[in-house]
Design a protein around this nucleic acid. Structure first.
Lengths: 194, 194
DNA sequence: AATAAAAGTTAATCTAGTTTAACTTCATTT
DNA sequence: AAATGAAGTTAAACTAGATTAACTTTTATT
């Protein structure tokens, strides 16, 4: 069952009755995207919060000069969305695009609002999820300021070994805030023992 | 009344009955800190989430080399804490220190857990607060990557004009991720019309 | 199997921001 | 009013990482 990984995930934070689980699932949609398809497009209002069953996405910002800046990757058991756009229902700053064929469970804005009413415990679930996301984001800001590019890459590799293997190198460079050329140099330095 | 600004703030997100307001206030502590005092110290477990009535704080990380990296400032009507330490009750990564004499309303870990049980609506309140904080944090990551130091300073000045005026320049440099010398150069460039 | 396109590498040159250090201005204490 | 220290400035020398550009390897398409 596709829903199993979502219910298992939720169960780590709160416990739902079978009835509540059914309500929850009835208000979500299982959806498949192909490689390169967009889940959210910069400028559009983000219509959903998405739990990934399988696959991999990147969330990025396209700047004035047409340069892509990746804010996050997401894989199985992670959430993806433009949360800023979702909560305010205003145009998205970010794009969310599939790097692989991706299957996800979508919570649309309206459905999620209804779910909060019908199962107030979900407020607690999402509070906890967003708390963790916020903490990770703050730590990343600090790492970007206090570590060199090489150190940041090493932290990335040990923190997200799965993503490091799955994602093309030029996207990792973008996530780290450096050019693909410089990441290439860093990698060859590491191979030659610093 | 000191509590007024907190209750007004909360009222923007959820509505509480007078009774609920009283429960909430009964589980908080009004506290004053002098300039330079620490609310949270790196290495200690963070015992509270704090709403600022008056004053100003900085949240910073002290790195290996003893360098201070400021993650955020907080003034009246903002929250301050080491949220990562608070939610996991593990040693803090950050220091929270008062830049001015600061008065705040403290929610201790235990009291907040009790409040979530007694007034489940508060889950919604804090979900929304943290959502906003997370969104701001993500946007900051992008700004740090896609803008030059000068542009980041200009964004900071227009986004937080009050903080720009209140806080010593070397702390703003730290927040922007640059040296005080370079911020000084940037400011003189701006004065001389770019 | 051949070709094209996408991803990754290498090296030379360049630049935004750091480091160091001496100096000035402002605030606080006596 | 003098003195000490904290905050801010200026400028020269330096470096991490960007840019440009030519090249190689891998992957996808016919």
């Amino acid at each position: 069952m596709n829903h199993k990984s979502l219910l298992d995930y939720i169960n780590k934070f709160i416990s739902l009755t079978v009835e509540e689980e059914n309500i929850l699932l009835s208000k979500t949609t299982n959806r498949r995207y192909l490689k390169d398809q967009y889940i959210v497009q910069q400028g559009d209002v983000c219509k959903s919060v998405n739990f990934i069953i399988s696959g991999c996405t990147k969330t990025f910002y396209m700047d004035q000069e047409g340069q892509e800046h990746i804010v996050m990757f997401a894989i199985e058991d992670w959430w993806t969305s433009d949360l800023g756009s979702h909560i305010t229902q205003t145009p998205a700053d970010f794009n969310v695009q599939c790097i692989e064929q991706t299957q996800l469970i979508q919570f649309t804005y309206d459905n999620l609002e209804e779910l909060y009413k019908e199962i107030p415990k979900l407020e607690r679930l999402f509070r906890k999820i967003v708390e963790r996301a916020f903490v990770a984001s703050q730590k990343r800001i600090i790492r970007n300021f206090s570590l060199s590019a090489k150190e940041r890459y090493q932290v990335f590799k040990t923190t997200y070994p799965k993503i490091d293997q799955r994602v093309p190198q030029y996207m990792i460079a973008s996530y780290l805030g450096i050019t693909k050329e410089f990441l290439s140099k860093i990698k060859s330095q590491i191979i030659q023992g610093q």
